[in-house]
């Protein structure tokens, strides 16, 4: 391609391309570059834990099914949102989230703090057929999740990839990933104690899908939904006053 750079016309075409890059990239650089140092401004959350292997698997199911298309995970600083969903979301709460699932549309409600709001049983019934629980709902039925065995063999690889990106998973967590995924959904098994050892006493260990014989995708998704908003309590400690929606009529 060196001949491209010789003729005058070609030089002007290339100069033109460079001008486009100059014009277009600066906005991105100016806006995004400061975000590389944003960890200096993000709130502290020393109590925050990482997702357990089961929760991460559940999160990947949430990603796979495109739940973000109808559910946000970002409570804005507006008064009505805080009253409806709970304290507004902090940047630190999604520090381990790849990708972030803030969403852009609420065909269904925000899920940033749905963890612990409903029972495991409710979630399972709701996912199998939403209209059994909420007759007006237009959410798809996810009955197949309860029928599908969860793939755990590669969870160690998933954790290792996250570790490579800077999420503080220990080598021990990676080595025990499939075992911990199993243990979290089988409270009576030997593997269960390892989960609380590695991820903290507050970690919920439960037969999420109500069936203690097999580990399904339903277990994983419910485990994830139940931990949403509960990895840290930073948002309950130091959030400022909310903003009034500008023209709310009250």
């Amino acid at each position: 391609m060196p001949e491209l750079f010789h003729r005058k016309l070609e030089r002007s075409a290339i100069g033109f391309v460079l001008a486009i890059i100059a014009a277009a990239s600066v906005g991105g650089i100016v806006e995004i570059a400061p975000l590389f140092t944003i960890d200096e401004t993000v709130e502290e959350a020393p109590d925050m834990r990482v997702y357990t292997p089961l929760e991460l698997a559940g999160r990947n199911i949430y990603v796979r099914e495109g739940c973000y298309a109808c559910h946000s995970q970002m409570i804005r600083t507006l008064r009505d949102e805080v009253e409806r969903y709970g304290p507004y979301s902090l940047a630190v709460e999604s520090q381990f989230d790849r990708p972030m699932l803030w969403g852009s549309k609420r065909t269904g409600p925000d899920l940033a703090r749905v963890g612990g709001k409903y029972s495991d049983f409710w979630h399972v019934a709701h996912l199998i057929n939403p209209r059994d629980v909420v007759p007006e709902s237009n959410m798809p039925a996810y009955a197949f999740l309860a029928r599908t065995e969860l793939r755990t063999s590669d969870l160690g690889q998933h954790l290792a990839a996250q570790q490579a990106l800077g999420v503080p998973y220990t080598d021990e967590m990676i080595a025990n990933a499939p075992r911990d995924a199993y243990g979290q959904a089988f409270p009576d098994s030997e593997a269960a104690s390892g989960v609380t050892e590695r991820y903290g006493e507050a970690t919920s260990v439960s037969a999420f899908d109500g069936v203690a014989t097999r580990l399904t995708e339903m277990d994983a998704l419910v485990a994830y939904l139940q931990v949403l908003g509960r990895l840290t309590d930073a948002a309950f400690r130091d959030t400022a006053a909310t903003e009034q929606a500008p023209d709310a009529e009250d």
Partner: peptide, 10 residues
């Protein structure tokens, strides 16, 4: 997994 976490990813 995207290399961008949380707020940067957003």
């Amino acid at each position: 997994y995207t290399i961008w976490p949380g707020v940067q990813d957003a």
